[in-house]
């Protein structure tokens, strides 16, 4: 059997997904036994021109990380889609926008103003902003267009599989690589490297009756490391988040922030969480319910921490 041809790319990403692949440690040698890497900017020196020269479908599997933030991300996504038999949205950014997707709470012009004018380390009295085309004495330079909205990978290309997580865990990556190498591919559109249970289902913390009289910020209380975080009044996203990470945050006394996204059948994680909260707020009157709920700081930025572009909201107005 000929070796798999594997590509990995980052659009608006941090490189954490790439490092997660390397975190499979010595098993990377086993990957090298079954796969040849034909494009992976963090690790090997292939250029876009090399990818352009590949025949359509030349790449067997492309692991695409990162959200689509600008025209370059979309262009490369389309190029890799054309060249790849299997396209995997790898990591929370590609699946639902991830942390870069928080930019959809802001307007493009306000982001530019903050970054290129107001930031403390910037002096820009002539108000120079990035231009998509810029004439220099030697010719013309181009930069990608910074889109108004952050998009998910599936907004710009057809995606075969979704592998959520910020980042996906090394164990899950290895499991998925083995499945791909075996050729026993799951049905198109499947979420891989994760479970269809919720974080709560797998969380070992002691759960009793969920009744919350007051929501806290973590520094306001001594967190009981045995007891359910939500029952302690912390906005843990466990009830509405897909399992697969191994409960890493909750094991460290940190409430889940939902990076694996919602389980199958739930289209809006934040809305689902609002529904979950409504059932646990311990209020006798609507006024008391309002008072309790208003204790939650930055609800939108918390409930849509990793998935605003992939949600029903998509962006703030």
């Amino acid at each position: 059997m000929s070796k798999l041809k594997l590509a990995s790319y980052w659009a608006a990403a941090c490189g954490g997904c790439d490092v997660a692949i390397l975190d499979i440690n010595e098993k990377i040698v086993d990957v090298a036994n079954v796969a040849d890497i034909v494009f992976w900017p963090i690790a090997v020196d292939f250029k876009y021109s090399d990818v352009e020269a590949y025949a359509d479908g030349y790449i067997d599997v492309c692991l695409f990380h990162g959200a689509i933030r600008n025209s370059e991300g979309e262009h490369i996504a389309k190029l890799l889609r054309q060249k790849s038999k299997v396209m995997v949205a790898f990591g929370s950014c590609a699946v639902a926008g991830g942390i870069p997707g928080l930019a959809n709470f802001k307007r493009r012009e306000d982001i530019f103003e903050r970054v290129y004018i107001e930031s403390n380390s910037t002096q820009n009295p002539e108000r120079v902003f990035p231009q998509t085309k810029f004439a220099v004495p030697e010719g013309e330079l181009e930069l990608p267009e910074f889109y108004k909205d952050v998009k998910c990978l599936a907004d710009v290309v057809d995606v075969d599989y979704f592998m959520p997580g910020c980042p996906p865990t090394a164990d899950q990556i290895w499991a998925v690589v083995q499945v791909i190498a075996s050729g026993a591919l799951p049905p198109k559109g499947a979420f891989v490297g994760c479970s269809n249970k919720t974080m709560c289902d797998e969380c070992k913390r002691v759960k009793t009756e969920k009744k919350v009289k007051k929501f806290y910020r973590p520094y306001e209380i001594m967190i009981d490391s045995e007891k359910c975080l939500l029952e302690q009044g912390l906005t843990c996203m466990g009830p509405v988040t897909r399992a697969g990470c191994g409960n890493q945050c909750t094991s460290a006394n940190l409430p889940c922030r939902g990076c694996y996204g919602p389980v199958d059948g739930v289209i809006d994680q934040g809305a689902k969480y609002i529904s979950a909260l409504a059932s646990i707020v311990d209020a006798d009157t609507p006024e008391e319910a309002d008072r309790i709920i208003s204790q939650i700081v930055d609800p939108a930025g918390t409930f849509y921490r990793y998935g605003l572009p992939g949600s029903l909201l998509r962006r703030a107005k």
Binding site: N70, E72, L102, I111, R114, V115
Partner: peptide
């Protein structure tokens, strides 16, 4: 050719 805008968001 990249900006995410952490400064703002």
């Amino acid at each position: 050719p990249e900006l995410r805008g952490f400064e703002k968001f």
